[in-house]
Amino acid sequence: MLVLSAAACQTQDKHPEPRFVSDARPALEAKESRYFIEFRSRYALSYGHSYVIFGREGAAGEMIDPEVAGLAPATASTTPYVLGHFLPVPAETGASDGDLEEEYRSASWRVMLTEAQYKKTVAHIRQLKAKSRFWQASIYNCNAFVADIARSMGYKTPSIWLRPQQFITKLREMNVG
């Protein structure tokens, strides 16, 4: 496992991928509900980070009161992050530095949802956040956390050992025409 995670870290991120939007709502509900989940990756000092942003969308496509969920070591120190490549380390599941800053976004896929789809997805995210207490690079990392969310929505998911930008891009490609 360690060899696989180390090999995944050796590739380079691409330039930012364009933003993609898919609509999981029936045509009749498309104009009535403006809920979304966005699968995202961002650049970081390491190999990056994957996470989700969810909430309501305004008329111009802007996020209204967005919430962030992702899995990362529960510290700004590099020591637990390095140790987490060998042993599980305590994790946090909320926003981390750079998640909402556009200049760090490396890939994204926004999925528009009905209110019912949104409530079901948010309930799953809250349950996942409550039980996800540890981060370990090769077993349960940020990609694995995002994959759990995507699978709960019925999506196919790529390998958790990809770099976050590659993971989000492949997630979209596997599930959109």
Rank of each mutant, 00 (worst) to 15 (best):
Y118S: 07
H85I: 06
A130N: 15
L45F: 10
Y104T: 12
M63E: 11
E115Y: 07
Y35W: 06
D97C: 11
K131M: 14
F145T: 03
G98W: 00
L128A: 13
T75E: 09
P80C: 03
S108R: 05
A59R: 14
C142N: 06
G84T: 01
E115G: 08
A74M: 08
A144V: 02
E29N: 13
R126H: 15
F86M: 10
K119E: 13
L83M: 15
Y140W: 10
L83T: 11
W109Y: 06
D99K: 00
E103D: 13
F134G: 00
P66M: 07
P73G: 04
I139H: 14
A144T: 05
A130P: 14
V146I: 09
P88K: 00
A95E: 14
R40F: 04
A137Y: 02
S50V: 03
Y118D: 06
K119L: 11
V68Y: 02
M112Q: 12
L83A: 15
L100T: 10
L113G: 05
S106E: 05
V111H: 04
F145P: 01
E67G: 08
Y104V: 07
L28I: 14
E62V: 06
D97T: 13
A69K: 01
A74G: 13
K120E: 14
H49D: 01
D65Q: 15
D97Q: 15
S77I: 00
S138V: 08
R40L: 12
I139D: 13
I53N: 05
A144K: 01
Y118T: 04
R40P: 03
I53P: 05
G61A: 12
E115V: 04
Y35N: 05
A95R: 10
F86Y: 07
T78N: 12
A116R: 14
E67N: 12
E57F: 06
T114M: 10
L28G: 15
Q127P: 10
L128F: 13
Y81M: 06
L28S: 15
P66W: 06
G61H: 09
E92N: 12
T93S: 01
D99T: 03
L128W: 11
S77R: 07
G70H: 00
E92A: 13
T79E: 10
S33R: 09
A95L: 04
W135T: 00
R105C: 09
V89C: 02
A60V: 10
A74E: 09
D99N: 07
H49T: 03
L45M: 09
E115W: 04
E102N: 14
E101I: 12
I53V: 11
